[in-house]
Structure formats: C-alpha cells, structure tokens
C-alpha cells in the first residue's frame, strides 16, 4: 500500500482526545475524488498528533484504501476507525499531492 505514491506519508494518530478533530471534503463522484483535510480542530487527537495538515489528501485509513468510496462511506470508515476500541490509534496514509 502506498508504494505507487512516492509522496505519501504514514501518520499514526493516537486517540489522545475524545474527538479526532478533522473535517474532510471529497469522495468518489465529486470534484475532489479522495477525501481532503479542510480543518484541524485545536484540542482534537489529530491536532495533538501534530503531523496531519490541512490540504493533505487521505489515501488510506488503517490500510484500507479510500479510492472509489463516496464521501459518506469514507467519513464513516474514518469515524469507525476512531471509535473502535481495538486500537488506540488510527493510521492515515496521506499525500500532499492532490
């Protein structure tokens, strides 16, 4: 995963706060085919992590590719990855390249 995306970065976000704290736009069949981070909320887990940035495009969540998933499906996948108690972190594969 990610080998064909030379600019991609794996970011592990610890569940350090009660919310993930990102807003995303995009998904299959929209102008932005992969979800893009549009906001990072102060005090959220993503902000605490310090490695996610506004403008990054999310390629994978916990190794699951987002390509081809519509917005709600992608959002639900991310929400569930944050909610599950199986892991104390969420892994994002992100790229600056849009």
């Amino acid at each position: 995963p990610g080998l064909l995306e030379p600019t991609s970065t794996l970011v592990r976000v610890a569940k350090s706060a009660s919310t993930l704290g990102i807003a995303i736009e995009g998904g299959a069949n929209t102008r932005q085919p992969l979800p893009r981070i549009v906001t990072i909320q102060r005090g959220g887990s993503a902000h605490n992590c310090g490695q996610l940035k506004v403008g990054q495009v999310i390629l994978e969540v916990n190794g699951v590719p987002l390509r081809g998933r519509e917005h709600r499906d992608a959002a639900q996948l991310i929400a569930e990855a944050f909610k599950t108690k199986e892991r104390d972190h969420v892994d994002f594969l992100v790229t600056e390249f849009n």
């Binding site: 704290g21 807003a23 069949n29 929209t30 102008r31 932005q32 906001t39 944050f82």
Partner: peptide
C-alpha cells in the same frame, strides 16, 4: 477533463 468539471462539489464532514 470536461467530465471532471461537471462533478458536484463534496459535502464536508466533521469527524
């Protein structure tokens, strides 16, 4: 590319 221009904007979801 023309097709891309006709695609709708996405909604935004806060997670």
């Amino acid at each position: 590319r023309e097709k891309r221009l006709t695609l709708p904007p996405s909604e935004i979801t806060l997670l």
